[in-house]
Design a protein around this nucleic acid. Structure first.
Lengths: 147, 147
DNA sequence: AAACTGATTATAATGATTACAAAGTAATAA
DNA sequence: TTATTACTTTGTAATCATTATAATCAGTTT
């Protein structure tokens, strides 16, 4: 399952004329198999055992490559560092205000909003970003226990 | 009009037990009257003539105060610095990929999405964030001229 | 094999944001 | 009014993510 996704991603890279290095393979693989939404540093640290000589710059460079090819998405928040998400199906994120956990959920695309925005503002719309914030079940439970 | 909004904001601060200093007054006023969505540094520079001794830290400190009281919103993107937006009515932003310009537009709240997300994930939902990306009319015109 | 292009590495630089300590200012109590 | 207290601002140093740069390396093409 995830092997197929990885293979697809590698094919996309090849078609875009991007050389597939061991580092790129490893970073992509990490993004595909990771359930979480890792930061550049998390990726760097996780691969350190297999690639002791890999530089942080390599991680950033390649994340930018993957971004430009459209394989991954960058998630930004005010405080922390950017997180990166391998793009599979169209899905959105819900983020816990309390512990920062990010969970995926599906929702039919919001073309309606895009169209309205285009109409009102005169922009040519490319994409949109939607995130929901709240408290995750775990934190909810903890809070109740404290009370 | 904007004076009324400023007054409301000052009242809210008072009710929250936050002292109203000249610096806070000025920063709030700048946020209310500004059509744009300024960065902390822009606010700092714009007020430098009236407050030659004001520290950047003061701007950041007070933006955090305003955030916690719920008077303003923080907008974050991958590359640049955070931008801050005085909260008036519920509105969303459309951002130009090419020049970074941010334009407001109204849209009925997406409670539907929030409810669905809550149902699927078990989160207690607080809020959401929606942004649309595209190319603004000005940049569109420029591109066509270049072609 | 030589030359070329692109990738990685190591490290320095940048830039936004935060932390911290000292000094200032308003509010409150004695 | 004076003393005390709590909150603010200021200035500067520190932090941390990200980017730039130059040197080295690897794969590909001629």
């Amino acid at each position: 399952m995830s092997e197929h996704m990885l293979q697809d991603a590698l094919d996309t890279l090849k078609q875009s004329g991007v050389r597939i290095t061991p580092q790129r393979h490893a970073i992509l693989n990490y993004l595909v198999t990771s359930e979480a939404h890792p930061t550049a540093d998390e990726i760097y640290k996780s691969l350190a055992s297999n690639f002791p000589n890999m530089s942080v710059a390599t991680v950033y460079n390649n994340l930018r490559v993957f971004l430009s090819v459209g394989l991954i998405k960058e998630l930004t928040y005010g405080d922390a560092s950017s997180r990166f998400d391998f793009i599979t199906h169209d899905h959105y994120h819900i983020i816990c205000d309390s512990c920062g956990d990010i969970v995926d959920f599906q929702y039919p695309g919001l073309e309606e909003v895009e169209q309205l925005a285009a109409h009102i503002t005169g922009f040519k719309v490319n994409s949109h970003r939607l995130e929901v914030y709240g408290t995750c079940p775990t934190c909810l439970a903890t809070k109740e226990n404290i009370k």
